[in-house]
Amino acid sequence: MIPPLQELVTSLSKLPGIGRRSAERIAFYLLAKPDEARRLGETTSSLQEKVKACGRCGNFATGELCPVCKDNKRDSSTVCVVARPWEIQSVERTGEFHGLYHVLGGLVSPSAGVEPDDLAVDHLVRRVQEEHIQEVLLALEPNMEGDLTGMHIVRKLRPTGVRVTQIAQGIPAGRDLDSADEVTLGRALRGRVQL
């Protein structure tokens, strides 16, 4: 393979979900479609300049605020806390949450050297105080690092008196109960609700 194509295949195969064969197919496709190749090049090269972090919540934004923070119809008394900005899309797709968001920037992780001060926890506390938030909903990974991060947040928020909740954890919808492992089922049992 000639060097320019080889270079493109190497770059493409570093992308998630794209193996060497797929990278070759995409490279040949782009070679045959110069307009699409140009458009793709322009959009990817300007991505870093155009996409910024929302100054209020940390979501992806093109200006000072993200579309969620700019939307006056959102319930500004409730904030959903996520570790990373792309997780907002998962919550939005449910159509069940109508409040605002807060992106932490990761999870507390002693093995990765991430301390609570490395995350936007103090910023969350300031938002709770300044924006008169009534409920903070934690949507963090259901594992030890997610729990540790959540516990740090609860401790920091305790003086504000704000209500802190977390998303339910347990059996995925559509899955058999007898196929669930004891950790998942245990979490589901601990988080049971009254009917």
Partner: peptide
């Protein structure tokens, strides 16, 4: 599960594992 009952104990456990 006992680790999840207290922030400082959970923090110490994960620190020790690291």
């Amino acid at each position: 599960p006992g680790l999840r009952e207290d922030l400082d104990r959970l923090d110490a456990a994960l620190w020790g594992l690291a």
